[in-house]
């Protein structure tokens, strides 16, 4: 099919339909509202359900209910709304319910503002809700990936019976770009654990409660065995001139787009700079980073926050090489010139 010029947020909705998403439950919030509006416009005619919930909490719990009966289901919001969903996300992870949550992150803390930020890295990647669980986190950097990674999110959610978050910043959500749509998914995995309404799918109880400490420990260990499998199979990243680079920039989302141009500028002057862009923020490409560090490369992590992912990079390289950090917040996005200069500053130390 020919390419269509659309917003990242709209690409999410269309990707979801292509992935066979049967229900969307959401609540309005800027800069994620186009996802709810798109779902409202397109889901119902396609035979899927759209419902505007009374709150973010209502929405995530409707997702919980719909996931329990075995359909593909999603919600989307932006940072403060995601904070509200955290309770339900923890329960869904505990009950092993597959669902997709899209976070078009904005400025915080508190009400913050509606400009792009990546301050949600910690709340999404490190948990956010209570208890021992892990979310699979995908970080698109263009409208095409908003579609593709939303589709992948549904696949991974079903495969591992776990909530999957598509974490994008306001820029990626709002930016318009050409998107080429993949073929729709027509085959879906069986879900014998779900409430299918038939004697064959009969299961007495879906719950996250285990009052006996040994039972709960066994359950959590089971979750973590599953997470180990995700770590072994699902790490995704993109490299850009990293092979011969002395300085490897690490970034996700919109920052990676600007960095790419800054790297091109530096390369034009013979400077050996490259980039590693994690596509899965969890599982994190730790091994790849430690391999690059073993080759003596240094790192510069650029984020739209005060330095959140940088800690994971430092852990991955075990502090064996310098890992610099540069961040802008409040909705400010670094310019090409700004990042080019940052590259030069950090190259001096190499």
């Amino acid at each position: 099919m020919a390419k269509v010029f659309i917003k990242g947020n709209e690409a999410v909705v269309k990707g979801a339909l292509l992935a066979g998403c049967k229900a969307y439950y959401g609540y309005p919030i800027t800069p994620a509202s186009e996802i709810a509006e798109g779902a409202a416009l397109y889901f119902q005619p396609a035979g899927s359900t759209f419902l505007q919930a009374e709150s973010e909490i209502g929405a995530i719990n409707m997702v919980y209910g719909a996931a329990s009966v075995g359909i593909r289901v999603m919600t989307a919001s932006s940072s403060p709304g995601i904070s509200l969903k955290m309770e339900g996300i923890s329960y869904a992870a505990g009950s092993e319910l597959p669902c997709v949550i899209v976070d078009i992150s904005r400025g915080g803390p508190g009400l913050g503002n509606i400009a792009p930020e990546q301050g949600d890295y910690n709340q999404i990647v490190k948990g956010g809700g209570h208890g021992n669980y892990q979310l699979i986190v995908l970080a698109p950097n263009c409208a095409q990936e908003m579609c593709d990674l939303t589709m992948l999110a549904f696949e991974l959610a079903d495969k591992y019976r776990n909530p999957v978050v598509v974490l994008a910043d306001g820029f990626i959500g709002q930016m318009m770009e050409p998107v080429e749509f993949p073929e729709p998914v027509t085959e879906f995995p069986a879900k014998p654990w779900a409430a299918g309404g038939t004697p064959e799918t009969y299961k007495n109880l879906i719950t996250s409660i285990d009052l006996d400490p040994d039972d709960l420990e066994r359950h959590i260990n089971h979750l973590y065995a599953k997470y180990a499998e995700v770590e072994a199979n699902e790490i995704r990243y993109e490299e850009y001139h990293s092979e011969d680079a002395d300085l490897v920039c690490v970034a996700f989302g919109v920052v990676s787009r600007i960095l790419q141009s800054a790297i091109d500028m530096a390369r034009a002057e013979g400077k050996k700079v490259g980039m590693l862009r994690p596509i899965t923020l969890w599982p994190f490409p730790e091994k790849k980073l430690s391999e690059l560090a073993a080759q003596g490369k240094q790192f510069l992590v650029v984020e739209l926050n005060k330095g959140q992912m940088v800690h994971d990079v430092r852990l991955a390289v075990k502090h064996s090489v310098p890992v610099g950090s540069y961040g802008r917040v409040g909705g400010n996005v670094p310019t090409l010139k700004e990042l080019y200069e940052q590259i030069l500053v950090h190259l001096e130390g190499v």
Partner: peptide, 17 residues
């Protein structure tokens, strides 16, 4: 079928189902 859900959230879970 049983869903022991979240404090206060039985009705949105039920609506989802």
């Amino acid at each position: 079928y049983g869903f022991h859900s979240i404090h206060g959230r039985a009705l949105p879970v039920a609506t989802g189902i």
